[in-house]
């Protein structure tokens, strides 16, 4: 009886699961929800790796200098389910990233979403703590 009830409850819970989110480790241990960043830059490299994929971009500052940023994303699995694959972000692609900067102030950010040149927008799957749901 109890097992049947458990199975039913489990089914209900699974159906209820709304939007998957991902973070290998706690968002808050590395990133700061109070430091949202919007970065427009050119992709230099994509590290398509577990447990987090990383997008490297060069961001041009107002004064003309270029700053390299690293954007942490979810796992490759999560990204593929969202519609991004290894070849979506070729070097040279200009993208707009919404995310949260690292707590240590370095040029790393936890990516929330990315906008491609054609205007398509993808969730980057790193909605950990503090990265509010859209």
């Amino acid at each position: 009886m109890r097992i049947v009830a458990t199975a039913i409850l489990l089914g209900v819970m699974l159906t209820l699961s709304v939007r998957p989110v991902a973070a290998h480790h706690a968002f808050a241990a590395e990133f700061d929800a109070k430091r949202p960043v919007k970065l427009e830059g050119t992709v230099t490299r994509v590290q398509w790796i577990n447990p987090h994929a990383w997008i490297h971009i060069d961001v041009k500052q107002a004064n003309g200098s270029v700053v390299a940023w690293m954007i942490e994303c979810g796992t490759p699995n999560v990204l593929i389910r969202r519609g991004i694959n290894k070849d979506s972000l070729k070097p040279g692609t200009r993208i707009l990233v919404d995310g949260f900067q690292a707590k240590d102030g370095s040029n790393k950010a936890n990516g929330r979403d990315v906008t491609l040149p054609d205007g398509k927008n993808f969730f980057l799957g790193s909605s950990g703590t503090g990265a509010p749901a859209r």
């Binding site: 699974l14 709304v18 989110v21 706690a26 909605s127 749901a133």
Partner: peptide, 12 residues
């Protein structure tokens, strides 16, 4: 990270 958990199937 309660809100993240709310949306996580694995948590439930």
């Amino acid at each position: 990270e309660a809100v993240k958990c709310y949306y996580s199937a694995a948590f439930w």
